[in-house]
Design a protein around this nucleic acid. Sequence first.
DNA 1: GCCGTTTTCGGCCCGACTGTTTTCAGTCG
Length: 573
Amino acid sequence: MSKNREIAEIFENMADMLSIADENPFKIRAYKKAAVNILELREAIEDASARGELTQIPGVGKDLADKIREYVETGRMKEYERLQENIPLDTVDLLRIPGLGPKTLSLLFKGLGIRNAADLEKALDGPEILEFKGMGPKKIEDIRRGIALLRKSKERSRLGVVLPIGESLVEAVSRIPRTEGAILAGSLRRMRETVKDIDVLTISDNPPEVVEAFTSLRPEKDVLASGGTKGSVILQEGIQADLRVVGPESYGAALLYFTGSKAHNVRLRGLAQKKGLKINEYGVFRGDAMIAGETERGIYETLGLPFIPPELREDRGEIEAAMEGRLPDLIDLADIRGDLHTHTTWSDGKATIAQMADAAEGLGYEYIAITDHSPSQTIAKGLPIERLLEKKKELAEEAGKRKRIKVLMGTEVDIKMDGTLDYPDEILKGLDVVVASVHSGFKMDRDAMTNRIISAIRNPYVHAIGHPTGRLINEREPYDVDIDLVIGAAAEYGKALEVNGSYPRLDLNDLHVRKAVDAGVKIIISTDAHSTAQLLFMRYGVGTARRGWVEKKDVLNALPFGELYEWLKSGRG
DNA sequence: GCCGTTTTCGGCCCGACTGTTTTCAGTCG
């Protein structure tokens, strides 16, 4: 196991310590930048160190290279330890509270001796804190809210973080001798936007041996339980993983049971009872006789039901729909023919137009829209009109070279505070794809925000609203918006709403997107990719859409190019 | 702390928004 992650985390922590110590901001940035680049490094950092090529890592100069080498060789970093003597890691942790930055923390650290969360909470209740410059009642309330949000986020991790870890775990389990395949269950299989733990199910004729192998798979942080049929560990990543081992005859029953949701399973067991049957994690029983259990499909059949996809299993009406034969024909990842919200080096993306187009071709897409930011997004290098026109030229050249994929000229244009857009209509008119999004002024009141977004929907050149609620899972609440009115307006004006597949967003969420398709609104499932790798976020978007009962016919980027293009052109004065 | 023929010192992304102010500091992206 390479030490890339550890070293990146150390530099990240050091940057935070330096920021609390009020150090040179550029030095702080240097540490952070190095951390990011180390995390993205394609090889084990020990190898680069052994070759003496650490300084070839971007952002790593002589000093940081020395520190990395010291850590690789000794497992320690003196400077890091020295910093911790002044500023403990508990204090650094407080920076993760949204609304509490280094300046305020430094003030409280020095002035009130606040070193950890307990100190902070006590101080927030006391009167002394108001003595400090810049501290007022609203700020204190902000920090309190931030603490609550952080607490919530600690319980559940984001889908896009955990799913890859779960998949590699499944692979590892399937390589354990005497197992027959392995599969993810639980909320991960249901593609919930956040998950608490990883559930893995496998088949074996010797469960205890498999559990034993599982708990010693990797140098796991902690073994919570290790028994005859199930084992439970805390992975290095800090996430709990449970393994259940069953015989082949019970595989379907166990999968159903451990996939949940609990509410769905309770309903199924109720149905079974009425038929004189009993369902448990080993099978379906009539008296003592087991009549199903090998497959999930077989179990649903004994209840007179068709197979219900995992994403629907929330007891949100799927059982009634199944009984009445009106389950949705859910969109599949394979139905997706293109990505309509992506960024490139023209604004804040990491890849060029050509690289993004190549990657999209590699995914078998028919089209990709390049939608860089508009000028208000200065931090994201949003494009002034002259740059937009330059980009248009490059994109046209790039598009001209390609036979297999259509490269569309687009923008993610900012919806400004007053509801107008960040480019004039005559510019928007000349673009193939216009996604309009809110990136500023998140604290507007509900009416103002709703009207702001509806103003954008009314613009004849806007095709879709990007990440319509602005939330960042575990980081930022959605802005206050009446989503029903937005959906109504989208339906009225024939505009699409986005399901943004970037896993911190997943916005619209499952419930909202279901409302949207119920109202007849078209959906665009996009990745908002800022790199070629992020084009793979599509599966999170599709998972969220499936949880929202979205069918292929609802999704614009499941259309063949000709039909999509017709839609894009329609209704534009 | 990093970086580089506008180089070995002097930059390094910066504007919007908020809450606290009475001209600005802190946070965010």
